[in-house]
Design a protein around this nucleic acid. Structure first.
Length: 532
RNA sequence: CGGCGCGUGGCGCAGCCUGGUAGCGCACUUGCUUGGGGUGCAAGGGGUCGUGGGUUCAAAUCCCGCCGCGCCGACCA
């Protein structure tokens, strides 16, 4: 290779020829959504500094900006759970293997993804090369599994706590981590260990338990819609997609930007299956021994992945204001030494006053980014993180008593110059506007890609990409009449990777027609889609 | 568990074919410069080349074993 200098390529021209640098003005995330959606998703998480893969297979490190979102979800949802009469408790991480055996379909459902604890200590073993290896020792009489879900161990506790109909209903929630040994992990969407809440309730009657199941589904729906700006669709799962051990499984499904479906939350009516398996019995009003009717319901860190896939764009994350860990970031512009202190003081003062105001029941969270970094670099960082509002305060603004305000749901260069008082006054409503615009945008996308389909031919066409090797974004929600069998469902899944996401509740899906596979009469349309 | 690919400073990679004691970009540190949109310049710091063995005067490079990871399938919230 000839020396670079002879060709006139100094370091400077190297910099200019760097494709990464040249790409900068266009957009922050590479590849773009349209080019490679899964890779884009990974890159957004990285650019937004929300999480990273850890050295433990399938387990992620959730970084402060990502965990901050989880903290918001937790604290806000927890209030909703309390409001509906639930109390928090905590149960063991480890579950005796025998507990899992108590409910037949439950074991089947989870057996293949259990982490098993078999020993309770380590012994140092000297290796021939002088190093020391720790070997498991002290084998347990009965192995434990790390909870993949807690129906059985909470059921065992319920069995102790319930003896009379007067002890019911029992309304418990647990915030915790669970582990499911997934073969193919994906940050936030499917990790081997994930954070969630699991509600477990026991009731005197079937009716009451079903009501509880649907009530919590409603809580999920409104929370996701109002706080996460996710337009979810409520419905019931078909038998093949049902939770192992449940009589019926309800869900909230949403469509993300590559038009695939994500189940964002579930609520199960467990009938008396787990009550019988765990011995949750009580003496009823008439004096007879009866089994309780139980429910369970949960949402996880997957919701964060769903939000990213729904709201983020080619410049990174866009946080819905109601869930954003920080609502507003202030970037002081300090070009000159002699005005620096005054600008910083104004920024701090503005932040303090803004922080005294509230938005959607929270104090407005403001951060002043006074780091000694280039202003443009800082702005881009916050764009990628998706903070809803960026405010710049520089010497010029200071003189005019104004601030420059930019919204993450608009073009980056679009800035409104507002008087300080005006900005303080308007910010809560601006945040709500952003919240509304995100939901509206997501809704529009979802509606645009829902299609009534009545023939198998059209169905296949809808779910087949033009380019088989590198499938482009295609498909969506196919709304179809369905009266087919379990086998028909399995065949569609095998052929096209498409499944029934849910049988929706909404009236708009209820109309009579003919099943596009079996030709049998059907009373309503269901949603078919590819899913995560 | 099957198919493919990859392990070289924190990250992304080149070097390997044809052996000769390690290089690039980003990030980091320091100084100057710049600052209303990813500033520029200069000087620095940092590497058991996944691991064990073999061949050789000499191994990141060649040979054999092992380990780990990623992607694609089956499974799944």
């Amino acid at each position: 290779m000839p020396p670079k200098n002879l060709l006139g390529f100094g370091k400077m021209s190297d910099q200019k020829n760097n494709p990464a640098k040249q790409a900068l003005p266009q957009n922050a995330i590479s590849p773009r959504r349209a080019e490679d959606f899964p890779e884009w998703f990974q890159q957004v998480i990285k650019a937004a500094d929300m999480a990273e893969n850890s050295e433990v297979r399938g387990c992620m490190v959730i970084k402060p900006w990502g965990y901050g979102v989880w903290e918001q979800i937790q604290s806000q949802m927890d209030k909703l759970f309390k409001k509906t009469g639930h109390k928090n408790a905590y149960f063991p991480l480890l579950i005796p293997v025998s507990y899992m055996e108590r409910e037949a379909s439950h074991v089947d459902g989870f057996a293949t993804e259990c982490a098993v604890v078999t020993h309770h200590r380590l012994e140092a073993v000297k290796q021939p090369d002088g190093s020391v290896k720790m070997k498991p020792a002290g084998e347990l009489a009965e192995p434990y599994i790390i909870r993949p879900t807690s129906e059985t161990i909470i059921g065992a506790a319920f069995a102790r706590w319930v003896s009379s109909y007067r002890d019911l209903p029992l309304l418990i929630n647990q915030w915790c981590n669970v582990m499911r040994w997934e073969m193919r992990p994906r940050l936030f969407l499917r990790t081997a260990e994930f954070l969630w809440q699991e509600g477990h309730t026991a009731h005197e009657t079937s009716d009451e338990a079903v009501k509880e199941t649907l009530l919590m589904l409603d809580v999920y729906e409104s929370f996701m819609r109002d706080q996460l700006a996710l337009p979810v669709i409520k419905g019931e799962k078909t038998e093949s997609e049902r939770f192992p051990g449940a009589l019926s499984t309800y869900c909230v499904e949403t469509m993300v930007q590559d038009r695939k479906a994500i189940q964002a939350g579930t609520s199960h009516f467990l009938g008396q299956n787990f009550a019988k398996a765990c011995g949750i019995q009580f003496q009823g009003r008439s004096g007879s021994q009866e089994h309780a009717w139980t429910t369970s319901w949960g949402v996880s860190t997957r919701m964060i992945g769903t939000m990213i896939m729904t709201h983020a764009d080619d410049d990174g994350m866009i946080m819905p204001p109601r869930i954003a860990p920080t609502h507003v970031v202030i970037v002081p512009i300090t070009p000159k030494e002699d005005t620096r202190d005054a600008v910083l003081a104004m920024a701090q003062d503005f932040a303090k006053r803004l922080g005294e105001r509230s938005f959607a029941g929270r104090q407005i969270e403001v951060e002043v980014d006074a780091r000694d970094k280039n202003g443009g670099e800082k702005s881009w960082e916050w764009i990628k993180k998706g903070v809803p509002v960026r405010i710049e305060i520089g010497p010029r603004d200071m003189q005019e008593g104004k601030v420059a305000l930019a919204r993450r749901d608009r073009a980056h260069k679009q800035k409104d110059f507002l008087l300080v008082e005006e900005a303080l006054e308007k910010l809560p409503s601006i945040l709500q506007e952003i919240q509304d615009s995100l939901l509206a945008r997501a809704r529009e996308h979802q509606n645009a890609h829902m299609k009534k389909i009545d023939s198998l031919e059209e169905f296949k066409k809808f779910f087949t990409p033009t380019n088989e090797d590198k499938p482009e974004i295609h498909g969506g929600f196919a709304l179809c009449h369905w009266a087919g069998s379990k086998d028909d469902e399995a065949k569609i899944k095998a052929d096209l990777k498409v499944t029934i996401r849910c049988v929706p509740f909404a009236d708009s899906f209820k109309e009579s027609g003919t099943c596009f596979v079996s030709g049998k009469p059907s009373k309503q349309r269901v949603i078919f889609a590819k899913s995560y």
